[in-house]
Design a binder for these strands. Structure first.
Lengths: 108, 108
DNA sequence: ACTACTTTTTCTATTTTTAAGAAAAACCCA
DNA sequence: TGGGTTTTTCTTAAAAATAGAAAAAGTAGT
């Protein structure tokens, strides 16, 4: 099962598409959650997912005009997509509860 | 931020209401996710959430006809409800993406 | 009442993940 | 060339997930 941060990161990679660089992703996560994330908090799970084959990296050496190391673009794999879909389906299932329960939660 | 299992457990406590005993919850989680969970996989996060004030426990000594120790019923607190709501809102926000991206994922 | 059995909880140990950030690498421009 | 900026690599510490043995408490049969 995907962890929370893994799910968020995979989704942000999909969303950013050609702009899916680690620091851009970090920005998106901050915006989404409202909380700043440490550098390791982004790279560590991203790299773990690369190792597992849920993401791939594509080096863009010097191509884009910028400072720093060769930027790495992240791309989601078929397996990554499958897991993300599965995760979303679990959530739909989870929250598919009787009206009364949902109201109790959402009106709290 | 709630972890995946914490969110599921809080939700199952809400759903089961008067039947929110650990082993019942374990059954529900298995049914929801399709995977069996170890005993510790249920009790450890439940107890952690009690310590944090997201759940409370109510002892029902001998009341219900059954074997074993006095059964413990779990109840969600106001703080637990708040976190669950927050978690749901984050998810709605996350998955609120352009149609094209959603399709790419859901049709994979 | 003693014993065997069932159910639920308590407790512990191991592995995995999260989290934070220092240090290194690569590039830019004066 | 040398100082400044950006991105990545690497390391460490804390928290969470996972698995399951052992203990507790009651029941039923003899």
């Amino acid at each position: 099962m995907l962890s929370k941060i893994e799910e968020i990161l995979l989704l942000m990679v999909c969303k950013l598409a050609d702009e899916a660089f680690a620091m851009q992703i970090r920005e998106e996560v901050k915006e989404l959650t409202g909380k700043p994330y440490s550098i390791g908090g982004i790279y560590v799970p991203l790299d773990r997912m690369v190792k597992r084959g849920w993401l791939t990296m594509q080096d863009l050496p010097g191509e884009a005009k910028r400072m720093g190391r060769p930027r790495r673009k992240y791309l989601i794999t078929a397996e990554g997509l499958r897991l993300l879909k599965e995760s979303h389906e679990l959530q739909s299932k989870m929250w598919n509860l009787p009206e009364g329960i949902i109201n109790k939660i959402m009106l709290s």
